[in-house]
């Protein structure tokens, strides 16, 4: 049985004084445990909405999301700690008034309920697993860089031992160096904890580095689903091509934009 099964999910945002907007049309996907699904698409394609549905922050207008054989939205309290999230903007994703320890401890206190020494020990383990020091636990978000703060958000996401983590543009705001480091960290943690990822991104290179299956959304519709990196690389359909063209060339000479301009130098 698949860990995650998205079954003909559609989602409509009702708006005041404007016609309702359908952001997802009949999306169906399955994801096996221990794998990483890259959810690709440009802005407004419905990637993040699908992420919010997986998290339980919203319920789909029609269709069902089966998680571990259970309808994710059948209960009033879908938040059981088994699905976690890492957001794009790490500064917005943590409460500026809390210390790193408080931030990481939130899911711990809600789901695992450790006390005293064991709790402290767990916090130290978690922050060290994401490559920070135990002394960082007493710091406030303003004292961290964006990359460090993203590590804290990751520590919070793995704290309650989830099965699935939704990475919503988790590396999109980082510089190239941090992006590589965080992707490597995510890959390590996935092995270490046996995690499953849904990696929402518009960055095809980042997705190729972390994911082993790929889905492309365009205007709320699933336009491509590739079960392996090889299949994705070999794919030639227009949706994949459009995603590939969206990335910047590695070498400056390959930038097509330059070719059309007169050389002033």
């Amino acid at each position: 049985m698949s860990l995650l099964q998205i079954d003909q999910v559609s989602h409509v945002y009702k708006r005041r004084f404007q016609p309702a907007k359908t952001v997802l049309h009949d999306v169906s996907l399955t994801l096996e445990a221990g794998r990483c699904l890259g959810l690709l698409g440009s802005s407004g394609a419905g990637k993040s909405t699908l992420g919010r549905l997986l998290l339980g922050l919203e319920r789909p207008t029609t269709g069902t999301i089966w998680f571990n054989g259970v309808d994710r939205h059948a209960t009033q309290r879908p938040f059981q700690g088994d699905v976690q999230v890492v957001f794009q903007d790490s500064f917005a994703a943590v409460n500026p008034k809390l210390t790193a320890a408080d931030i990481i401890a939130e899911p711990l206190d809600n789901f695992i309920r450790l006390k005293g020494e064991a709790r402290q020990q767990r916090l130290v383990t978690l922050i060290e697993q994401v490559g920070l020091k135990a002394t960082d636990l007493t710091k406030y978000p303003a004292q961290f860089s964006g990359g460090q703060l993203q590590r804290i958000a990751i520590a919070r996401a793995i704290a309650a031992e989830p099965r699935l983590i939704v990475l919503d543009e988790a590396v999109s705001s980082l510089d190239m160096v941090n992006k590589r480091l965080i992707l490597a960290l995510l890959a390590d943690l996935k092995r270490l904890h046996g995690l499953t990822y849904v990696f929402i991104t518009h960055d095809i290179k980042a997705a190729e580095q972390l994911c082993d299956s790929f889905a492309i959304l365009e205007q709320g519709r699933l336009v491509g689903h590739y079960p392996s990196l090889a299949a994705f690389d070999a794919a030639t359909d227009p949706a994949v091509e459009r995603m590939r063209q969206a990335k910047l060339a590695v070498h400056p000479r390959q930038r097509t934009i330059r070719k059309t301009q007169p050389n002033k130098g």
């Binding site: 922050l57 976690q84 999230v85 919070r156």
Partner: peptide
């Protein structure tokens, strides 16, 4: 986002 994260974290 931190409010959404708090909800996901079961608060």
């Amino acid at each position: 986002a931190f409010i959404a994260a708090a909800r996901v974290n079961g608060s």
